[in-house]
C-alpha cells in the first residue's frame, strides 16, 4: 500500500483544486468499480454494487476527503513578492521556512517581515512567498492572484512509519482505494458508494452535497486523527501503530452507537487491533453527512497521525492496512 500512498501524498490537491489528485484516483479505481462520476463541486463518486436481493441489503457511503491544506496567492507586490492566505488550517509558525509548490510546479519559500517585533504576533498577513523574481511583472509570468500552492514534504518510509505532507487525508484515500481492492476480491452484499470528497479542510463542504445525492443508510468517514503519544502531549488515548481508531466523538459529530458497534464487531471478527478516538477540536466529513436528509447514522475510522497539518505528518503503515481491512469487513 505504501507505493500507492507515496503517489497519493505527492500529488497536488489543495482544497478547491483537486483536479490532479482526482485524476490519479480515477485511474487507480475506474476498472474496479461499477459506476464513477465527478459532481458539480468536484467530488469523485464511485459505486461498487452489491447484491440487491441480499438480506439486509444497505447503502453505505465511505467518505475520504482528497483535498489537502495549502495557501492561495492574494496579492503580488511591486518587487514580486507574493502575499497569501491560508486554505484550511495553516499555522504561521509551522509555515516559516517551508517550501511551497504551485500547481504549475513553481517553487517558493515562505518567510515573514523582518520588522516583526515579537514572534508571538506572527500572522499569515505578515508573511510572504518568495519565488526568486525581481518584479511584479516577472512574478505574474508564473503566479497569478488566486493560484494555490501546497506545502512540500517528501515521502519517507522508515520501518513501519511513513512521513509525508498530505497524509491528511491521502492516507484515508489509500484506505478507501484498498477497500475497493479487497471488495473486488471478496464481493459485497451492500451497495457501497466511495466518495473522495472536496473542500473538507474548508468546512466539510463536498461531503454535504455528496451525501445529499446518495442519501445512504449508513456513512463511514476515513480520515486522520491526532495522537497522545508524543512528549508532554495533551491527554489522548490514541497511539501510532496500535491500530486504526474507531471514532466516538469529535467537534463535528457524536458517532452513532450502531455504526460504532458495527465497526467493533468487524474488528473482533477479523482480529484487527483497534483503539477508540475522542478528538477535542477538529471534525471530519461525517459531521456534515449525518444531518443530511432525515439523518444518516454515521461513524468514522481514523488513522492515528502525528504532526497533522505540517509537511511531516507521520503514520504507521500497519495501521493503514488494518484500517482498510476493518472498513472492508464492516461494510461488506
Amino acid at each position: 500500500m505504501y507505493e500507492l500512498l507515496n503517489r497519493l501524498t505527492q500529488t497536488f490537491g489543495v482544497s478547491g483544486n483537486e483536479e490532479p489528485i482526482r485524476e490519479l484516483i480515477i485511474n487507480e479505481i475506474k476498472d474496479k468499480v461499477d459506476e464513477i462520476k465527478t459532481d458539480a463541486l468536484g467530488n469523485l463518486i464511485a459505486l461498487k454494487k452489491g447484491n440487491a436481493d441480499a438480506q439486509n441489503h444497505k447503502k453505505f457511503m465511505i467518505a475520504a476527503h482528497m483535498d489537502e491544506i495549502g495557501v492561495i496567492a492574494t496579492h503580488i507586490d511591486d518587487k514580486g513578492y507574493i502575499r497569501f492566505s491560508n486554505i484550511g488550517g495553516v499555522s504561521p509558525y509551522t509555515s516559516i521556512g517551508q517550501k511551497v509548490e504551485f500547481k504549475n510546479g513553481i517553487t517558493g519559500v515562505v518567510s515573514y517581515e523582518q520588522k516583526l517585533d515579537d514572534i508571538k504576533n506572527l500572522k499569515l498577513s505578515k508573511m510572504y512567498i518568495d519565488i526568486g523574481t525581481k518584479s511584479r511583472e516577472e512574478t505574474e509570468k508564473f503566479v497569478k492572484i488566486g493560484d494555490t500552492a501546497c506545502f512540500c514534504g517528501s515521502f519517507v518510509k522508515q520501518g513501519d512509519f511513513a512521513i509525508s505532507k498530505a497524509m491528511d487525508n491521502r492516507a484515508g484515500c489509500a484506505v478507501a482505494t484498498e477497500v475497493i481492492n479487497i471488495l473486488s476480491k471478496t464481493g459485497t452484499d451492500n451497495d457501497i458508494y466511495f466518495v473522495f470528497t472536496v473542500q473538507e479542510e474548508l468546512g466539510l463542504r463536498g461531503a454535504k452535497t455528496a451525501a445529499y445525492q446518495i442519501m445512504p443508510d449508513y456513512a463511514i468517514a476515513v480520515d486522520v486523527t491526532r495522537t497522545g503519544d508524543t512528549p508532554e502531549s495533551h491527554i489522548m488515548e490514541v497511539k501510532l501503530g496500535e491500530g486504526p481508531a474507531i471514532k466516538i466523538k469529535d467537534s463535528s459529530i457524536l458517532c452513532h452507537p450502531a455504526v460504532k458497534s458495527l465497526l467493533e464487531a468487524a474488528a473482533k471478527r477479523a482480529n484487527i487491533p483497534y483503539q477508540y478516538e475522542i478528538l477535542e477540536g477538529g471534525g471530519t466529513d461525517v459531521g456534515a453527512i449525518h444531518t443530511t436528509g432525515g439523518g444518516v447514522p454515521s461513524g468514522a475510522v481514523s488513522i492515528p497521525t502525528r504532526y497533522i497539518h505540517s509537511p511531516t505528518e507521520m503514520i504507521s503503515l500497519k495501521d493503514l492496512e488494518n484500517a482498510a481491512k476493518l472498513v472492508a469487513e464492516a461494510v461488506r
Partner: peptide, 16 residues
C-alpha cells in the same frame, strides 16, 4: 436528539 451538540434532531426531523 442531539440539540446540545448541533441541533441534529431538529435538522433531520423537520426535513423528514
Amino acid at each position: 436528539v442531539q440539540e446540545e451538540i448541533g441541533l441534529t434532531g431538529g435538522i433531520t426531523v423537520s426535513y423528514n
